[in-house]
């Protein structure tokens, strides 16, 4: 009864390894996860195409953040496996970068140092670091804030730093864990707008976890709806609203109300809407 659409690209497992033509960036295969004796993810499988923007929506307790942490190699996979660009995820990797919900900036580092952090760890050439940091700062609109400390910035500005810190890596997969959940509604829309703009230029594979239905419709190519306790994929919806989008254009689109209803129905209840 649930509508399950995968992109027309149903793949053959045999052609995974190092195949440049493989249109699938991420394969999540039969993931199960227990916290203590509680099953939080139950047989979750999902394929995400290259250059696709996927939003994972679900009520709290659906294990969506846990799934994202597994993608990043931060949480252990109990059963199943995740393949990114053909190789199995066994820990954090440099071709993926995460934007964190609580920003998690280093209070003792200036903004530019916060952004250059992943590159400093990688031991990249100083000139290259400076160049990339500058580009990332321009991209997220933080010019002039380079030498400020995080506590001198508003929440929205902080998450721009968080976004820049992930983009500076130039990851092939961008992971975002409810990145706009900790800012006010006004700022949230501004940041969504910015992300739409930035992503329309970069177009790297993005997995965005949120519990806001509106946010998911605004940003995603496809929405994965998860149920709670245990977390399972309830359904996948294509968002066929054309790009370039703005927050406004999405709200006005004729498909928006029905999409909203469909997601809501899949989540099952009012819990998904926090706006």
């Amino acid at each position: 009864m649930l509508k399950r659409t995968t992109k027309s690209t149903v793949s053959k497992i045999s052609s995974i390894s190092a195949d440049e033509e493989d249109p699938i960036a991420i394969r999540i295969e039969h993931i199960c996860k227990w916290f203590g004796d509680l099953l939080v993810l139950k047989d979750v499988s999902l394929e995400i195409a290259k250059n696709e923007f996927v939003c994972i929506v679900g009520a709290s307790g659906s294990g969506k953040t846990t799934l994202l942490r597994m993608l990043n190699g931060l949480a252990e996979i109990d059963v199943g496996r995740i393949l990114v660009d053909g190789t199995e995820v066994q820990g954090p990797r440099r071709d993926m970068a995460m934007v964190f919900q609580q920003f998690d900036l280093f209070p003792w580092k200036t903004i530019d140092k916060n952004i250059s952090f992943p590159l400093d760890l990688a031991g990249m050439d100083k000139g290259e670091i400076a160049e990339r940091v500058k580009a990332a700062i321009t991209l997220v609109g933080l010019n002039g804030f380079e030498s400020k400390y995080p506590n001198q910035l508003s929440g929205g500005m902080k998450q721009r730093v968080g976004l820049a810190r992930a983009l500076v890596v130039r990851p092939s997969v961008l992971l975002l864990d409810e990145p706009f959940g900790a800012v006010d509604a006004q700022t949230r829309e501004t940041l969504q707008e910015e992300l739409l703009k930035i992503w329309s230029d970069l177009r790297q594979t993005a997995v965005f976890v949120t519990h806001s239905i509106d946010e998911a419709i605004t940003l995603a190519d496809r929405i994965v709806v998860m149920s709670a306790r245990p977390g399972q994929v309830n359904g996948i919806l294509d968002v066929d609203i054309p790009r370039p989008r703005t927050v406004e254009s999405v709200r006005r689109d004729s498909r928006y109300p029905s999409l909203r209803e469909q997601v809501r129905a899949l989540i099952g209840g009012q819990e998904g809407n926090h706006e």
């Binding site: 954090p92 990797r93 964190f100 998690d104 280093f106 003792w108 580092k109 952090f117 760890l121 890596v169």
Partner: peptide
């Protein structure tokens, strides 16, 4: 959370001491 950021960006143990534990 900060330790996790380090982990997420592939910090080695020594790097996470130097960049995160010591400063905090």
């Amino acid at each position: 959370g900060l330790l996790e950021v380090g982990q997420s960006f592939s910090a080695t143990r020594v790097q996470s001491w130097r960049h995160i534990v010591l400063p905090s």
